[in-house]
């Protein structure tokens, strides 16, 4: 089982779906952010799995995964700083309460 690419990919797919669900269903901005992190991790798992099981992609996989990791870190930084800024204004982390603009 651990020698099967399919198993890893399906696992990544499940994680991606969990993240998607969290993003669509949660109301809290930080929860949504965490869901996105899960999705990005699913991507990384996919990449690593390809790297491990397809000889031509071997080293590339690890490198791309590292890059994705760094991008995720940058995104988290930006997202959390926005969350903090908005919390100063609105005192609530619930996204669907940010509806001042809808008439």
């Amino acid at each position: 089982m651990s020698h099967s690419l399919d198993a890893y990919l399906i696992l990544a797919g499940i994680l991606f779906s969990i993240g998607t669900f969290g993003f669509l269903a949660r109301r809290n901005a930080i929860s949504m952010l965490m869901s996105i992190e899960l999705m990005l991790n699913a991507v990384n798992l996919t990449i690593i799995a390809f790297g491990a099981f397809i000889p031509t992609l071997k080293v590339q996989g690890s490198v791309i995964a590292l890059i994705v990791l760094a991008v995720a870190a940058a995104e988290a930084t930006v997202g959390l700083s926005i969350v903090i800024a908005i919390y100063r204004n609105r005192k609530t982390p619930l996204v669907d309460e940010y509806d001042t603009m809808r008439d």
Partner: peptide
């Protein structure tokens, strides 16, 4: 408040779509 509110929505959907794109 409007600015940060727009930003968080922009950010969340933008990151979500980035993850999909990357997948």
């Amino acid at each position: 408040a409007l600015s940060t509110e727009g930003a968080i929505k922009y950010f969340l959907l933008g990151s979500f779509s980035s993850a999909i794109f990357l997948f």
